[in-house]
């Protein structure tokens, strides 16, 4: 009997909480253009496990913002992994609407999961705060490979699409796969016939390349730097619009240079929840702009060989519209979505 009572109390508590939370969300902020400093901790959500790229981005942002006192409240990082960011996106849209204590880090999968129908939510539901930096894809072969240029790879694929094994560190329909197939289709390869082997991590991918299981890797530049430097991997092309500044990859030609007029950009951006209060949005936008220009941030970018491509929220939003169209066309072209 006693138990039932407790259960009831608990239930009542739940109901009260939910109501209270609901009311809190309804409250209108003073709609002035003033930037409003937060008084409570701001949590940055990393939509993947600790140690992942998103997690690293979130932790780096939190570190610079708090150490340089651009933001004076603590900024813990919360990991919400699942479905390439779908779980965190639903959480953001469903539970944190109008909230001023949460930020989230994303990259192109934010667009892809919506395009391929894994979630009904999209980037349009979030409040873009800034694009932080970009990474690019690199195509490479083993040092003893018979291929010396991307053209040779493409020619072999045109002759027999199954003759060259392509590997990447993410699932089909995701960045590594899209970047290579985009380039291949421009060269007239029948990409629907090209098998793609995906590996769980950059480390496994490299092991497979060194062990001869695959012929060509398509993966982010950052993942290959160590092997490039050691001379185990020969880079064929990068997907950036112009050559990268990092001396380790400065001699790698861009796609344009090898006759493929395309670029593929892996942007990383930071977003607020839907209907983020204007004051908080303004405050955080200013803080992140300061961060993006600070020496500490630039030093971190250099370390990970991220290309700083800061863009404030409104421009970032327009950029996302373009990217979304681009990715959609690409996926349709590959017959991956209808």
């Amino acid at each position: 009997m006693r138990l039932k009572k407790y259960g009831l109390i608990a239930l009542l508590l739940v109901v009260t909480m939910v109501l209270a939370a609901g009311c809190g969300g309804e409250k209108k902020e003073a709609a002035s253009g003033e930037s409003k400093a937060p008084t409570k901790p701001i949590t940055i959500i990393a939509p993947n496990g600790a140690g992942s790229g998103w997690d690293l981005t979130a932790r780096s942002v939190a570190q610079v913002l708090t150490e340089k006192k651009f933001v004076t409240v603590p900024m813990p990082v919360e990991n919400r992994a699942g479905g390439g960011g779908v779980v965190a996106l639903s959480h953001m849209v469903e539970n944190l609407k109008g909230n001023d204590q949460n930020l989230i880090v994303y990259s192109p999968p934010l667009l892809l999961v919506n395009l391929n129908g894994q979630t009904k939510y999209s980037y349009k539901d979030l409040t873009p705060i800034a694009r932080l930096f970009s990474d690019y894809e690199l195509f490479g072969v083993y040092k003893d490979s018979k291929f010396h240029s991307l053209d040779e790879v493409m020619d072999a694929l045109k002759k027999d699409p199954k003759s060259v094994k392509i590997g990447g560190a993410s699932a089909p329909g995701s960045m590594d796969h899209l970047a290579f197939m985009m380039a291949a289709s421009k060269k007239g390869v029948n990409i629907k016939e090209v098998p793609y082997i995906s590996f769980q991590s950059g480390g496994e991918l490299t092991a497979a390349l060194l062990g001869g299981s695959i012929d060509v890797i398509s993966t982010s530049v950052g993942d290959t730097l160590g092997q490039l430097e050691a001379g185990n991997v020969r880079a064929l092309a990068v997907t950036s619009p112009e050559r990268l500044k990092d001396p380790r990859v400065a001699n790698v030609p861009t796609l344009k240079e090898v006759g493929i007029d395309e670029t593929f950009e892996v942007w990383r951006g930071i977003f607020g929840p839907p209907n983020m209060p204007e004051g908080t949005k303004k405050y955080l936008t200013e803080a992140i702009e300061k961060m993006a220009k600070s020496d500490e941030w630039l030093a971190i970018c250099k370390k990970y060989s991220w290309v700083p491509t800061y863009q404030p929220g409104d421009q970032f939003g327009k950029y996302l519209d373009d990217q979304n169209k681009l990715m959609g066309d690409l996926l349709r072209g590959m017959n991956l979505i209808k």
């Binding site: 780096s60 160590g226 430097e229 370390k303």
Partner: peptide
């Protein structure tokens, strides 16, 4: 010898290395 992390913890530790400017890889 190869710059391949043998486990996810090792990969994570290497990720932490990068925060301090050390590039994981065969030349580490």
């Amino acid at each position: 010898t190869l710059g391949l992390p043998g486990s996810s913890t090792m990969a994570l530790l290497l990720g932490i290395f990068m925060m301090w400017g050390v590039q994981p890889g065969p030349l580490l």
